[in-house]
Amino acid sequence: MLEARLEQANLLKKVVDAIKDLVQDCNFDCNDSGIALQAMDNSHVALVSMMLKSESFSPFRCDRNIALGINLTSLTKVLRCAANEDILTLKAEDAPDVVNLVFESAESDRLSEYDIKLMDIDQEHLGIPETEYAATISMPSAEFQKICRDLMALSESVSIECTKEGVKFACSGDIGSGSVTLRSHTNVEKPQLNVEIDLSEPVALTFSLKYLVNFCKASGLSEQVRLCLSNEVPLLVEYALSNNSYLRFYLAPKIGD
């Protein structure tokens, strides 16, 4: 059986909120290392990979692998019933047909309990190869979100070019063109505002801004976002969570003619 207790419902609320517009029905794969989720959007252009490590929960108990097939719209409806600070406990039997969610309010004596019917989702699982990326950019997640939103006003695609001078986000469209160039930057007082660019070789790739703007819904989960690029491979956009948990998005590049 599964029993996973989260100190704050807020974490799961924000994770589900960040991915519910990208994927609809997902398997939450529970095992002794934690709760994982991998799903692609309908066009198989973007993939979300979530890992909530068992250390994120206390207590965490999962004595055999359980796949919880859940519709994210249903999960969103139930998570709306939890206050951000509520203690959230997920429970499921082995081979379950429902997942049980309990919300306990910290101060007042209120306990809410919901069951969500599970679905049989036979989702193809993709192998994501370990990659030594040519360029890794760590930057404020809010800044990346602003760049994507700003450039999406001009074009549906953005080229991301990393050289030793820095990283340049550029686009051009019907009304004109625009670009944002960042260089490594250290803010001593506020390290969360740092921009760090690690480059082993120059990289230039083009991506759909619609998807990047969608990924940026996760910005509230982490002050920093990590972009990993190599030529001819999908972009990795990673929001690190506590206890080595993470929310990762992969996006296939646009291929020039």
Partner: peptide, 14 residues
Amino acid sequence: STNQGNLHTFFSKQ
């Protein structure tokens, strides 16, 4: 113009 790649080009089914 550029056309959108697909993840199956890069990630194999497990």
